[in-house]
Design a protein around this nucleic acid. Structure first.
Length: 249
RNA sequence: AUCCGUUUAUGGGA
């Protein structure tokens, strides 16, 4: 069953709802993990209705993860009111429930509500802080981003990247670079961000320098570099990036 | 010792 669960998950993530369902149906006594995974698969295939049916049929006292998933499902589908209703009906909340709700508000532009929730939280984890930084960034409030970043008790690479991004997107490139240099570790996302931040400011050559320096490239790096060249009239260079990226596969 | 599921960061497009 352990293995079957993983299979359902895998098929779901590879985009094959049918295969996921086929495997699920062979599980004789699906446990809470099986159900959770399948609900998630439905949601990722935009089948909220089916997800909801499974949710409603959940075993008694079905755990908080199921609730959290439904919150997320509704807001992603633009049904904030239903999402909030689920949140309000939760038997109890864990930090993920709060974080999910904050993010839901943030991504639908309900900045005030997001902040309120954040203030109400008793136990915040690094994700809560990262999420609220994102809220401020979305709202264009660099100083709030900065304050939150300095106030939070712990940082991970997402926190750092969000802080860099919060500065960069408001045109504070120097500060963004400063933070980027101070990062204890960087991943491809942080590099991509730096690359694009320079490109956005029209510093295409610098962007290329960053591109060359980064330890690995993904499809975002290639696309960002390509667009940077192309939209600034560097036709040759754009073409060259394109060819290189094609060859890479 | 962590170790099956849910929340947060980067580009383009639709």
């Amino acid at each position: 069953r352990y293995l079957a669960n993983a299979l359902v998950d895998m098929y779901g993530k590879c985009g094959s709802l049918e295969d996921a369902l086929a495997v699920y149906s062979t599980i004789h006594c699906p446990n809470i993990f099986s159900t959770t995974i399948l609900i998630n698969v439905y949601i990722n295939h935009c089948q909220i209705h089916n997800a909801r049916q499974l949710f409603d049929a959940r075993p008694l006292g079905g755990d908080i993860v199921l609730w959290n998933i439904m919150i997320q499902a509704y807001y992603r589908d633009g049904q904030m009111r239903r999402g909030k209703a689920i949140f309000d009906k939760c038997p109890h909340w864990d930090v993920v429930s709060w974080n999910a709700m904050i993010t839901a508000y943030a991504q639908t532009g309900h900045v005030l509500e997001a902040e309120e929730l954040f203030e109400k939280m008793l136990e915040r984890d690094v994700v809560s802080w990262n999420a609220i930084m994102q809220v401020y960034a979305y709202d264009g409030r660099v100083h709030s981003v900065r304050r939150a970043f300095e106030k939070m008790p712990q940082w991970d690479v997402v926190s750092w990247t969000a802080a860099v991004g919060g500065h960069a997107s408001e045109g504070h490139l120097e500060e963004a670079v400063f933070l980027f240099r101070k990062m204890p570790q960087r991943n491809v996302v942080s590099w991509n961000l730096m690359l694009d931040a320079h490109a956005q400011e029209g510093h295409v050559e610098l962007a290329k320098t960053i591109f060359d320096k980064m330890p690995e490239h993904d499809v975002v790096s290639w696309t960002a570099m390509l667009i940077a060249f192309a939209s600034n009239g560097y036709v040759q260079e754009a073409w060259s990036i394109f060819k290189q990226s094609a060859r890479r596969d």
